[in-house]
């Protein structure tokens, strides 16, 4: 296998349409955001968060943008701000949403449309592999 340096390895990720690969850069940006989400693994924290989201978020060193996106449950923006989907899953589980319900909100489709697409065999990769190659 030919050797690849980390710069060209990472650069290729930006060429995938509609996808945020969880790179070190994103992980660093989202560290506190993801650790906050992780805290919702505990029932007592879920309860406190649900009672007063703003007050709970005050305890975390997250940016105003992350805070805003969290309160709005804007998952695409949260991904841009360094959130990782497995961590953010703690937030939508706390809301009582399934993966299908939460994931559909990132696609611009309604839950029903998204579910119908999945039942029909999912989203085809055709045209969605590369921005540059348009394939």
């Amino acid at each position: 296998m030919s050797k690849q340096d980390i710069h060209s390895y990472l650069a290729e990720f930006d060429d995938i349409p509609g996808t945020r690969v969880y790179t070190a850069k994103r992980a660093r940006k989202g560290y506190q955001l993801n650790q906050f989400a992780m805290s919702l693994m505990k029932e007592e924290n879920r309860k406190r968060f649900k009672e007063n989201e703003e007050a709970y978020l005050d305890e975390w060193d997250i940016t105003p943008e992350q805070r805003k996106a969290l309160l709005a449950r804007d998952y695409n923006t949260l991904l841009d701000l360094g959130g990782n989907i497995y961590f953010l899953a703690k937030v939508f589980s706390t809301d009582g949403l399934s993966f299908v319900q939460a994931v559909s909100t990132m696609t611009g489709m309604s839950v029903e449309e998204y579910q119908a697409m999945m039942n029909a065999g999912g989203r085809s990769p055709v045209g969605l592999r590369s921005i540059k190659e348009k394939n």
């Binding site: 994931v103 998204y114 990769p125």
Partner: peptide, 17 residues
């Protein structure tokens, strides 16, 4: 196997691959 849980491309499935 194939799945994407995030972003606008979520729901991708590639049976052939």
């Amino acid at each position: 196997l194939s799945h994407q849980l995030q972003g606008p491309r979520a729901g991708l499935i590639n049976k052939e691959w």
